[in-house]
């Protein structure tokens, strides 16, 4: 049976505030699903319900068909998670903390050291494996938290903003780790749309506790981005008013906004003009175009189209 994660009519209320309203979402098979939404949309609430950190007001959260509220131990037997930024007992070393998790998760004792060494190696923390966690920075702790999700060969991995607190290199490394988990179901929330585009196969968007869309990134982009394209055009010389006028006359260009001294930001209509045609059109004008770079992804446009306000 393929790994699965399913929310059935999932709702959560904190007093009078509905953090989650009748969420129905079924993720099945080995893939990475991005979970997007503004602050307070209900992403972390959903993930906390799936991991038994909070309970649902109504509805069911199923991991591989097992209801978390009825059999948490059974449901999480094949699922690991990283919710928010967990802290580890400060006087334990990473090796001890991960050994504790291995023992809790039933990893055979003969395999624990190998698994731990592999996991610590993947997050590049070998040098620190026997130092007490209490002295670690937030980013170092988060690396250990990421390592903790890799220990027990899980089928389902739930990651709540896993790159939080990491430096750029750490973020790239974690993304590479997530990309390598292509034989599992990964459910990952993030505010970084480029990260989701790079790492995920599908995307679910949520706002005000309600699911707005769940589909492949390509399908969501095609349906909701409006097809609009934004590009940054670089020039070999400072941009003059005449250049702006010439560029604005190129077929498909909808608007031209001056950027820095040698850059213009163009919005074009991809229904009538592809990026390739646009570049050809600009080059034909002989105004010194040296580069053309997409400035917003289709996912970003779709996000902005679906989610009108942040709170």
């Amino acid at each position: 049976m393929p790994p699965s994660l399913e929310a059935v009519g999932l709702s959560k209320k904190f007093g009078n505030f509905a953090a989650l309203t009748d969420l129905n979402l079924k993720l099945q098979g080995a893939k990475c699903v991005g979970f997007l939404g503004p602050n307070g949309a209900g992403k972390t609430t959903t993930m906390k319900i799936f991991t038994g950190l909070i309970s649902a007001s109504s509805g069911r959260a199923l991991i591989n068909g097992v209801d978390v509220s009825k059999d948490k131990k059974g449901a999480l037997a094949s699922c690991t998670s990283l919710i928010e930024t967990p802290e580890i007992y400060s006087s334990l070393t990473p090796k001890e903390a991960l050994t504790m998790l291995c023992a809790i998760r039933g990893v055979p004792s003969s395999e624990r050291n190998k698994r731990i060494d592999e996991a610590i190696g993947r997050v590049k923390m070998q040098e620190w494996e026997n130092k007490k966690v209490g002295s670690f920075s937030k980013g170092m702790k988060q690396r250990i938290n990421v390592a903790s999700t890799l220990l027990s060969d899980p089928e389902v991995i739930i990651l709540d903003e896993p790159t939080t607190g990491l430096d750029p290199r750490g973020m790239t490394e974690v993304r590479d780790i997530v990309k390598s988990l292509d034989d599992r179901l990964v459910f990952m929330s993030s505010h970084l749309l480029a990260e989701v585009t790079e790492v995920c196969d599908e995307v679910a968007m949520i706002d005000h506790g309600k699911l707005l869309v769940y589909d492949s990134i390509g399908a969501v982009t095609a349906k909701f981005s409006g097809g609009g394209g934004n590009v940054d055009v670089g020039f070999s010389h400072p941009v003059e008013a005449q250049t702006i006028s010439i560029v604005g006359s190129v077929m498909g260009v909808l608007s031209v906004i001056p950027g820095s001294e040698r850059h213009l930001l163009l919005k074009f209509d991809p229904k009538t003009t592809s990026q390739e045609k646009l570049f050809e059109g600009l080059a034909a004008m002989r105004v010194g175009v040296t580069s053309l770079k997409e400035t917003s992804s289709g996912l970003e446009d779709a996000y902005l189209s679906l989610i009108k306000e942040t709170l």
Binding site: M1, P2, P3, G29, A30, N64, K73, G74, A77, S78, Y89, S91, L92, E96, A97, M100, A103, I104, R105, G106, P108, S152, D153, P154, E155, D183, R184
Partner: peptide
């Protein structure tokens, strides 16, 4: 994806009590 028995193995609650006690005492 094939589901191995190891992926769904469970440690007994009694053994888990011992693990939690050991590392909290530490």
């Amino acid at each position: 994806m094939a589901v191995t028995s190891e992926r769904r193995s469970r440690e007994s609650s009694l053994a888990q009590v011992g693990v939690v006690a050991k590392y909290n005492f530490l």
